[in-house]
Amino acid sequence: MKRVYAREEFCAGCKLCEVHCAVAHSEYPDDIIKAFLKQKVKPTPRVLVEENQPISFALQCRHCDDAPCTKACISGAMQKDPLTGVVINDESRCVGCWTCILVCPFGAVQRDAGGHKVASKCDLCSTNGGLPVCVQNCPNDALVFTDELWGR
């Protein structure tokens, strides 16, 4: 399946991926200014730039083939789509027990800061059907979206 891979050697650490991810998953996905300034709770990015300069890279859910979060989920909200392979948290079923956060080996699941008690994680922008916004907006091509196994 297609995944987002980080190319650490080109990550400028600007965190534009975080900014655009937060907007895409906000109440105003098409208006960055409203998303940040009008929405009551600051939008949360589902990608996080890990950094210890000069090293930095963006990390998001790896959509594991054998995803521990789906197994650990107590309500069946966390599911891997058998067709696309995308691991998605059905927020209507999520009870906010944080078991998924505990088991994720990458630390890629977070608590949603938006007020409702659900787990928040990368959905590969599967609702917009195209390139994930983090990849789209990376100024240095440090993120790629590909089905080839990237890197080591």
């Binding site: 400028a12 650490g13 600007c14 965190k15 534009l16 975080e18 900014v19 960055i32 200014i33 998303a35 940040f36 300034l37």
Partner: peptide, 13 residues
């Protein structure tokens, strides 16, 4: 200030 979202991209760059 009407447009700045305090995302700190400028600070980091």
């Amino acid at each position: 200030r009407d447009r700045c979202i305090n995302c700190r991209v400028c600070v980091r760059q």
